Amino acid sequence: MSATHASDVETRFVDVSGIRYAMRRFGNRNGGLPLLCLQHFTGTLDNWDPAIVDALAEDREVILFENAGVGRSTGAVPATIAEMAAHAIRFMDALELPKVHILGFSLGGFLAQEIAIAVPDRVASIILSGSAPEGGKGAGMDRPELVAIYTDSAMPMNEKLKRLFFPDTPQGHAAAAAFINRLDARQSDRDLPPGPEVAGTQLQAMIAWANWQGDLRQKLAKINHPVLVTNGDNDAMIPTQNSIVLAEALPNATLILYPNAGHGALFQYAQTYVAHVREFLRGQ
């Protein structure tokens, strides 16, 4: 068994076709198929909540992947969701991972869907948290009130996370503060913050994903894997209705909505979320 704490596991690198992907790989290697974790909009390796990934690493190996051009990964930031997914598949190939479970949060959930369709035999099951199908209403996260926060250079990143992920309630404020404290647990070998091109490029890719005019239900019908869909009941970033659509249109999905929570429901309800994910994965 390897290290099981995200706060102290070393950052490692994998070189593929001239691109160096940063990753953190830790947990119980005797616990069955690994869990590949795909990050949110502008998120880096340091944005994974230790309360979630450390607990899941007790059961199985957890692999935190950083896409091209983000943090300490090299290369250009991919301009489309399909390109982001292709990078993740190349990363899986480089690590010789024949099959994985995938946890995709927000933007990461977009990639998870693309990967499941592109290489279905390489995916055992999927967790989609705070995500949306292609063509999902509001999935581009380009509403003015959100863009104002993304582009506010004077606002600290921790403040942005609090405003975007948590409700403006006493309970939400307390959950946000606890979440930020957990992210700060890692003291050394911290990731680089996302460069200035990351937000713009990823946002345009998400807008294109949201504006897709195809048949989303026909597309989702191709994903026959077991899927756990989770979100808060009032997600202001990627509207909660998208999670409901995912659960209705995916052939083998379970939906959990957490009360009085938004996009960061998995962080606000970390202990409960971990219990739900563990139960789901143990059944696969």
Results as ranks from 00 to 15, higher is better:
residue 98 P to N: 12
residue 34 P to N: 02
residue 54 D to I: 08
residue 9 V to R: 10
residue 77 V to Q: 04
residue 98 P to F: 10
residue 52 I to G: 09
residue 107 L to Y: 15
residue 51 A to D: 11
residue 37 C to G: 00
residue 82 A to K: 14
residue 35 L to M: 11
residue 38 L to D: 14
residue 8 D to T: 15
residue 51 A to V: 14
residue 23 M to R: 11
residue 47 N to C: 15
residue 28 N to Q: 04
residue 61 E to L: 13
residue 57 A to M: 02
residue 4 T to C: 13
residue 37 C to I: 02
residue 48 W to F: 12
residue 72 R to S: 11
residue 19 I to Y: 11
residue 46 D to H: 07
residue 54 D to E: 12
residue 45 L to Y: 13
residue 117 I to F: 01
residue 61 E to H: 14
residue 48 W to V: 06
residue 95 L to K: 05
residue 110 F to I: 03
residue 11 T to Y: 07
residue 111 L to R: 09
residue 41 F to G: 06
residue 104 G to V: 05
residue 100 V to L: 10
residue 89 I to H: 02
residue 81 I to R: 12
residue 71 G to P: 08
residue 67 N to R: 00
residue 85 A to P: 04
residue 32 G to N: 06
residue 23 M to F: 15
residue 32 G to W: 00
residue 72 R to G: 01
residue 83 E to S: 08
residue 8 D to E: 11
residue 64 L to N: 04
residue 114 E to D: 08
residue 48 W to K: 01
residue 32 G to C: 02
residue 110 F to W: 08
residue 110 F to H: 10
residue 116 A to G: 09
residue 39 Q to I: 08
residue 99 K to G: 05
residue 108 G to T: 08
residue 19 I to P: 09
residue 72 R to H: 03
residue 28 N to F: 09
residue 1 M to S: 12
residue 45 L to S: 06
